[in-house]
């Protein structure tokens, strides 16, 4: 671009010839020497990892794009059909627990699973949980446990 040369007066009488020299054939042998050094210095596993990464990178990118589109489609469809499966409120959960809660008795639970009759090992519970036709058994149980029958009837 015709940039103005700004070399000043120096050096008077000197030209710009390169005063240095170098061994014969240096630039012919340098690339070979460099290749050898690269092979010894740059660990092969780094190159292999780099190559593997370069090979799988497009596939990973494609998979990410497909996943993104699938998620967009899924959530878009859900919002389109107006599905509402929000989490229940804390009050609703508390009410549910209150209504369905029961004391967990492991041996009883196991017996239910195994569909066997259950007997309390404790002497204070001498009755089986198997249903009986005899109402006296239940009356005896309520009596022994000091349970108010009126209370049961009003509550349930």
């Amino acid at each position: 671009m015709g940039e103005k040369r700004n070399t000043g007066k120096i050096p008077e009488g000197a030209d710009k010839r390169n005063p240095f020299s170098l061994p014969d054939g240096y630039f012919d042998s340098f690339p070979v020497k460099l290749t050898e050094k690269l092979q010894s210095e740059v660990p092969a596993n780094i190159l292999i990892t780099k190559r593997i990464w370069e090979t799988i990178r497009p596939q990973l990118a494609l998979a990410a794009v497909i996943t993104a589109f699938a998620m967009l489609g899924y959530f878009g469809f859900r919002s389109f059909i107006g599905t509402n499966d929000e989490w229940p409120s804390n009050e609703a959960v508390a009410e549910y627990i209150d209504y369905y809660q029961y004391d967990f008795i492991e041996p009883y639970f196991m017996s239910l699973l195994e569909e066997e009759d259950f007997y309390f090992e404790d002497a204070t519970y001498p009755y089986s949980y198997t249903w009986s036709e005899d109402p006296d058994i239940y009356i005896d149980y309520l009596y022994n446990e000091d349970i108010d029958l009126d209370l049961i009837l009003t509550e349930f």
């Binding site: 050096p11 000197a14 010839r17 005063p19 240095f20 020299s21």
Partner: peptide, 17 residues
């Protein structure tokens, strides 16, 4: 001491400067 320096005296002075 450089055996790979082929410049004349003026070039050497320039390089030293």
């Amino acid at each position: 001491d450089d055996s790979y320096f082929d410049g004349d005296e003026l070039q050497k002075r320039l390089q030293k400067a």
